[in-house]
Every structure is written in C-alpha cells, then in structure tokens.
C-alpha cells in the first residue's frame, strides 16, 4: 500500500466516523433534561417567547429532521450559533483552538522528550533499581488524576516557591495573532517580554498534560527496548563488535520508536480530552474551558461543535501517526 492510497482510504473512512460521532452527541444533547429553548429565550422570558424561540431554533421538529438539518449546515461550514456567546460557533472555535493546540502539542512533545530517553534507560537496565523506580513512578503518574497533579504543581511552584504564575495564558495583552500560539507569535514579533511571560504560563499546564503521557511512553518504550535488546539483529551487531552507543541510539532506538509513535498519537488524543479538566484548573482560554462552560449552560450546539472539532483533530493525528510509521518502518510501505 502506498502513501496516497493509504491517505485516501483514511479520508474515506473519516466520513462515517464523524457521522457516527455527531449522531451520538446529537442524541446525548437532546436527552439531557434541560430545555434549550428556555435557555435561548433568556431568563425572564414569557411562555410565548419560549415558544417563539423553540420554533426559531426548529426545536419543535422531529429529532431525525433536526439532525439532517444540522448536518446540512455542518457541510456548509456552519456549526450554528452559541446560545451563550451569541456568536457563530465556528468563530468561537477558531478563537480558542490555537490555545488548546499550543498546549497539547507542547504536552505531547514534552511527553516524548521525557518518556523516550527514560524508557530506553529503563529498558537497557532491566531489573536494576533505576528500572524499578521508573516503573513505580510511571504507574503512579498513570493512576493519579490529572487535576490532582495540576493542583500539586500549582501549590508547589506558584503558591510556595512563587516561580511560575498560577493560571492564565499571558500577563499583558496577547501579541498580534499570526499562528495563535502565543509563544510563537511573541517570538515572531520580537517581543521577548511577552514570550517569556507566555512561556512561564504554559509550563505548568504542559507538565500536567505531559507527565501522565510521559509515564505511558516510558512503559511502552521500555517494553519495546527490552524486546529490541534481545533481538537477533542486536546479538549479531554485538558479536561483530559495533560500539554499544551506535547499537543503542541508532539501531535499538529505531526499533523501539515504531511502537512509541503509536503511543504518542494516543497520548495526543488523551491530551485533547484531558485538556478539558486541565484548562479548567489553569483557566486556560482554550477548547476545554469552552466545552465545560457550554455543557454547564446546555449550549448543545457549542458542545457538538467542540466534539466535532476534537474528533477531527484526533482522526488527523491518527493519520499523522500512520504516515510517521510508514516513514519509520519500510516493511509496511511495499
């Protein structure tokens, strides 16, 4: 299977996946026992006004008809209007998506940078005290709730040591938006102060996202390194006297990365959902806080918009993982 047919195949499957996702969320949003028409009409609305809102939003139609109508809008790039912000949801999402992406991408990178070397060290020194310690710590981080990690980090680094800000994304006004990634925007604008401010703000949420991810990566990298160390090709290279560093950091690492890349993709997906909780703790103005607020206000168009957005991102990250794996492992590509 070559690259093009793989990508086309994935994109075709993408359609039923998204349809299914939307159907589930649509039904879930409708069985919640709050009446969106009441919310849309406002706090002091009369019965007539509520009825008027119900008709305006087509909430009096049968459910399948509403769903088809919603799909028709989605295809045209219209996700509806938020009851709460009174803005098109597409605008809300584009405003908030960069903040979440900046956080999750950095989180996944950090998870890889922390997890891969530790996993290699753990796997090479199997059953040493270091290996046992790393395994214990990684199980802890996988098991502990992310919001607890977030609060501990806040307690230590913000409240006690005062090294890093407690919450938010930046101290001053954001630099002129180009990518929407504040660190990059500030850097492009040559604004060192804002860059440092943005960087200081993103450290704790990134760590909160990265630590459980790194723990997963450590465990998977360790397993595949152990397998690679015992592989015949490594035995051969050892018998031929190749330097250990070349065998480990070139040959074993590549063998191990094969499964680590898959895990990084999963970590990205978990981070996107984990961002909901973490953004709430750090008051990070991304999709997560938006999702929480939308749910609390029964703003179901917004909830569906967020779901669609996260689903698409997740599918794209899976596609990226497949492409990376084809680059790493030539056997699948022929």
């Amino acid at each position: 299977m070559n690259v093009v047919s793989m990508v086309v195949n994935r994109l075709v499957w993408f359609v039923p996946t998204v349809l299914g996702l939307l159907a589930v969320v649509f039904v879930l949003a409708r069985i919640v026992p709050t009446d969106p028409a009441v919310l849309a009409a406002g706090e002091n609305a009369t019965a007539e006004q509520v009825q008027e809102a119900r008709e305006r939003l087509a909430l009096d139609r049968p459910l399948p008809e509403q769903f088809v109508e919603y799909l028709r809008q989605v295809v045209q790039g219209d996700l509806g209007t938020s009851f709460y912000t009174q803005q098109p949801i597409v605008d809300d999402l584009t405003e908030r998506l960069p903040a979440t992406l900046e956080l999750t991408i950095l989180g996944v990178l950090a998870a890889g940078l922390i997890g891969v070397p530790l996993g290699v060290i753990s796997g090479l020194n199997r059953n040493s005290w270091l290996d046992h310690l790393l395994r214990l710590v990684s199980v802890l981080f996988i098991g502990v709730a992310p919001f607890w990690i977030a609060m501990q980090l806040q307690l230590l680094f913000s409240m006690q040591l005062g090294w890093l800000p407690l919450s938010g994304r930046i101290d001053d006004f954001a630099p002129e938006a180009m990518t929407g990634f504040l660190t990059i925007d500030a850097l492009v604008a040559g604004d060192l102060q804002n860059f440092l401010s943005a960087l200081r703000h993103i450290v704790l949420p990134t760590l909160t996202l990265a630590l459980p991810g790194a723990a997963v990566i450590v465990r998977f990298t360790r397993t595949s390194v152990v397998e690679a160390v015992n592989s015949p090709s490594v035995a051969y290279q050892t018998a031929m006297g190749l330097p250990r560093r070349v065998i480990v950091w070139k040959y074993i690492l590549r063998l191990a990365l094969n499964s680590t890349v898959t895990q990084l993709g999963l970590v990205f997906g978990i981070s996107l959902t984990g961002a909901v909780v973490i953004e709430a703790v750090f008051e990070w103005p991304g999709l997560g806080t938006y999702a929480v607020r939308s749910i609390l206000h029964s703003d179901y168009n917004a909830v569906m918009g967020v779901t669609l957005c996260v689903g698409v991102l997740f599918a794209l990250s899976n596609l990226l993982v497949d492409l990376l794996q084809m680059a790493i492992d030539p056997r699948g590509a022929t």
Binding site: P232, S233, G241, R331
Partner: peptide
Amino acid sequence: RGRLVTFVPQDPFDSFNPL
C-alpha cells in the same frame, strides 16, 4: 571482536535490522 574474528549468523534475515 568484529575485526580479528568476525561472524556469519545462522539466520541472515533476523540478523539484519529490518528498519
């Protein structure tokens, strides 16, 4: 090792790194 004495393994497929 690997200079004065070298090695031809039993299974040439497994002894190459596949990647």
